[in-house]
Write a protein that binds this DNA or RNA. Sequence first.
DNA 1: ATGGTTGTTTAACAA
Length: 280
Amino acid sequence: MTDAYAPLSGPPKTPRGATRLVTWNINSVRLRLPLIEKLVALVRPDILCLQETKCPDELFPDGALADLGFAHRVFHGMKGYNGVAILSRVPLSETAPRHWCGLEDRRHVQATLPGGIELHDVYVPAGGDVPDPAANPKFKHKLDFVGAQAAHWKKTKRDRPRILVGDLNIAPFETDVWSHKQLLDVVSHTPVEVEALSKMRENHGWVDLARQAHPEPQRVYTWWSYRNSDWRKSDRGRRLDHIWATPDLAAKLKGFHILREARDWPQPSDHVPVVADLAL
DNA sequence: ATGGTTGTTTAACAA
């Protein structure tokens, strides 16, 4: 596991006996249904966690996703914004939406996998442009959201295997962004956010699987802005999408891939799929 | 230098 992006023709086949888990900020599930089909053909996820579905539940393309082989689905969306979904070939139980900060935002859904593994699909607020919670309510919401999650994970007993995936909208390490210095004041990489996310991670002993597989100082990005004319040439990426696991599960990681090529698919999301193969 | 693009929903937001 040396090259986070290799090979460019798609990740290797899922190792024998492993379960392939993928997280992807899809930025409209309806618009990008063809890209999900492409992902399924190329990557064959056993479990696919989506964020930013931007789709109320009554309009969710449930039948089309069932036809792709995801016999088990839970989705939790709203009109226009947010929205998360877990699509799975393996049974899901105890499916439940979760709400934070007293809001009805659709930013978190959980399910239980066979073996009693708890899976959380999370979409952290982006936080707007101004990195000052006093001046920018969106940034305050982001800090409150991550703070509430940190408190929640601190009080949650470490009594079962867990996985947490999603667009956490924070790039915590220096090599998670194209320029640490130039992004210190840019929402997604400010010290106050990085500190909040570190607490959230450490409070439950979560292992950051990307960094287990591809330690610093290797640069690892999962998002490239739409606002670059040539994203590949400028390579101004950030690692916003994460897969965390409790240590017992982290020890079972067999492969980790970032599907960089998906950024060049027709009408792409600005995020690319992140893949973890786990011998569950 | 305060740009640039995309999606939802149709001009204003959110990212």
